[in-house]
Design a protein around this nucleic acid. Structure first.
Length: 225
DNA sequence: TGCCAGGCCGGGT
DNA sequence: ACCCGGCATGGC
């Protein structure tokens, strides 16, 4: 009988063999990672890159400058990322929060414990569970397992969770059964996204060529996934 | 062409 | 406590 830890590591190893190291986050520096985390909410990463490029060109990957920047101007710059109006507010909320409470000093903000950091991030309107964990793991480089729709779908298909497990339950599955290793959490989530993007989308539920196909798999998948 | 993408919030039951 | 609509662009 395999333990949960063994199953999780098997999946990880299979993905890692197939895709190799992912070396996430695909962005430059902690502030850009944070911005990307907000912009990618329910949005294709390709669109996010354009939005970030617009900010880069104007040298706006800078807390002080972003604090000054008019929300409507920010919205125009991030338009390609979709939901540009709400996302402009969310970015502003986050930047303003760090500016007010930590003097705009990301390093100082990131000195908080994982628990405190998560609490602080979640107190910002527009930052939910996943965005908070993205920031903790990929910007602050501290161990917080990130759960997203791909994680949910893949874990459900491999019978490691049940349909009504919520975010925190799925997060706990990983965090309670894996060592709290930043590199491992980083790679694991990145690899799940690689599987999700390439082989486990809504539109190809059979996952014929999925590298995880040999592993325990639910043949009868809910249609709405 | 219509559906999907690395969520989150607020208002209504 | 759940459930749902709104938010929006670009790619396939």
């Amino acid at each position: 009988m395999k333990t949960t830890t063994q199953k999780l590591m098997e999946l990880y190893n299979a993905m890692h063999r197939f895709f190799g190291p992912q070396a996430w986050w695909p962005g430059d520096g902690p502030l850009e990672v944070m911005i990307g985390a907000v912009l990618t909410q329910n949005t294709n990463w390709k669109n996010v890159e354009r939005a970030i490029d617009n900010l880069r060109k104007k040298n706006l990957i800078d807390i002080e400058k972003l604090v000054q920047l008019d929300t409507n101007e920010l919205a125009e710059l991030i338009r390609p990322a979709g939901y540009f109006s709400v996302k402009a507010k969310r970015l502003k909320n986050l930047i303003h929060f760090i500016h007010e409470n930590y003097g705009g000093d990301l390093q100082r903000f990131f000195e908080l414990s994982v628990t405190q950091l998560r609490e602080e991030l979640l107190s910002v309107n527009g930052i939910g569970y996943e965005t908070a964990d993205d920031i903790i793991l990929y910007a602050a480089c501290k161990p917080a397992f990130v759960v997203d729709t791909y994680t949910y779908r893949i874990m459900l298909r491999h019978l490691l969770i049940s349909q009504d497990d919520d975010y925190m339950a799925i997060k706990a599955l990983f965090e309670d059964n894996l060592p709290a290793d930043v590199e491992l959490f980083n790679e694991y989530h990145a690899l799940l996204v690689a599987v999700g993007k390439n082989y486990c989308k809504k539109t190809n539920p059979l996952c014929e060529k999925c590298p995880l196909n040999p592993y325990e798999h639910d043949p009868n998948l809910p249609e709405y996934l």
